[in-house]
Design a binder for these strands. Structure first.
Lengths: 258, 258
DNA sequence: CCCAATTTGTTCGTATGTATC
DNA sequence: AGATACATACGAACAAATTGG
């Protein structure tokens, strides 16, 4: 499998560290080095590129920020090729959406399209152990819901259910996007004091659909699973919007800032 | 709009440049600095953090690699907060999928779910100018298809059509994900010599659906647009798989490597 | 437990490049 | 053209971390 290429950083490269970083990336690809492989020592790189230590180190930092390398001190240490972690990728992508902030509607437009698809693709393909694990996550939020700000924990548990589901997908793209959407949503709700409030309707609907979903998955009923999740997405979206609207009314002056 | 937070880099931070970079991120968020704002000069940062020039510079490189800052020399120069570009975000995310490579099936599972949704959400919301622009892109690939490797250009044009469509969405998430999927697919096809070959069936189907789609969009027929794109996704996926299978047979020894 | 070797991490002083006025 | 303000790059020395004896 010729590894295609590690993406080069766009936008007019110029500085020496940037050029060195790109050269090292290309080098890794050309040599087919895999995660864990140690690349030449600082001293060797200094000689190889004919540049000062500081310049080389800045290049390494550029790669490090992208999650592509990791360095350790001491004997046997050095700079190592590193597989970009999902968490790192999500963090990096999250920075983009810090500036181009999606709305609740935007997030749900994707969730509504993807989650039912995920559910359908999982039907009949999960092991008994995986199904049990899902039920364990459901049990976590089985408590009656009562208390005040502890409701936020319930919402988090619901998102964790979705994350667990996503992790079971064999499709890394689907897994990543759904997980990322859940993160964005969690962030949006926490930061706006949204979570599901003590809304009993949402809670009941949540408990309900999770158990019905697991049942459909267990039965290998793809279309059933798709339908359950599609319906839930609609409900969750509607309830979240309702809350958002309620908050907007209460705190209108707040929204005026900026 | 309190900007929530710029994502911190996961995975056990330790070195000084990393800590400084995180501190600067937090500083930017706390002060509410926006793209274009100049942050303190190197000298000032050295004083502020009580560290050497090299350390501070490495921290700046860490932020630069994430696309969060940009620096310019000369008077009036300095380090500036920078809005992460879509291209940069896609490149960074692409590095993740360099190691966790999705299959053609994986990519199409998402495309099949998202593109019809995009089409439906666009119906009746496009200006005449936008519709004309779509038709212009269609015209680009209106040639009869004949020649050999120039067929790859046709495939690229088709992906460009999708990209243009995505850009017209008001949903930044949808825009990004669909654009990214197209990139991944383009890369996969180019690197595996896939593109649509001289497959007349795919070409005709492509021409066909594009014009029918624009018609539906012009008519404001959301469900029609959705159906057109859903059908096309199925066809494109099927044809691409057929080609992939043909290639696999011809080059089986190649696949044995690694 | 300490010591020595190895490799990255950090500092400082100086010089160069570049854009603005 | 020259002065100014800023990042960029160099080089040599020293500090910290890790490993093995």
């Amino acid at each position: 499998m010729p590894p295609v290429t590690i993406r080069s950083t766009p936008e007019a490269r110029q500085s020496r560290p940037q050029r060195v970083a790109e050269a090292i990336k290309q080098w890794v690809v050309d040599e087919g080095w895999e995660p864990g492989h140690r690349l030449p020592s600082e001293a060797a790189l200094i000689a190889r590129f004919g540049m000062a230590k500081g310049t080389i180190r800045e290049a390494i930092r550029l790669l490090e920020a992208q999650g592509l390398v990791r360095s350790r001190t001491g004997p046997g240490g050095g700079v190592f090729v590193h597989q970009v972690s999902e968490a790192r990728a999500a963090a990096l992508l999250g920075n983009y959406f810090y500036f181009v902030r999606p709305s609740i509607d935007d997030i749900y437009q994707l969730r509504a399209a993807l989650e039912p698809e995920l559910a359908a693709s999982l039907a009949g393909r999960l092991s008994a152990a995986q199904l049990d694990r899902l039920e364990a996550v459901i049990a976590e939020s089985a408590a009656p819901a009562a208390s005040a700000e502890e409701e936020a924990a319930r919402h988090a548990a619901s998102l964790r259910f979705h994350a667990t589901l996503a992790e079971m997908s064999g499709n890394p793209l689907l897994r990543f996007v759904i997980g990322f959407l859940a993160e964005l949503l969690g962030e949006a709700t926490v930061n706006r004091g949204l979570h599901s409030g003590t809304d009993p309707e949402l809670w009941q609907s949540g408990q309900d659909y999770q158990t019905r979903l697991v049942a459909a998955l267990r039965a290998g009923d793809a279309e059933g699973a798709r339908a359950v999740l599609a319906a839930h997405m609609q409900t969750a979206h509607r309830l979240m919007k309702r809350q958002e609207a309620a908050l907007a009314k209460r705190f209108l002056p707040e929204r005026a800032r900026r």
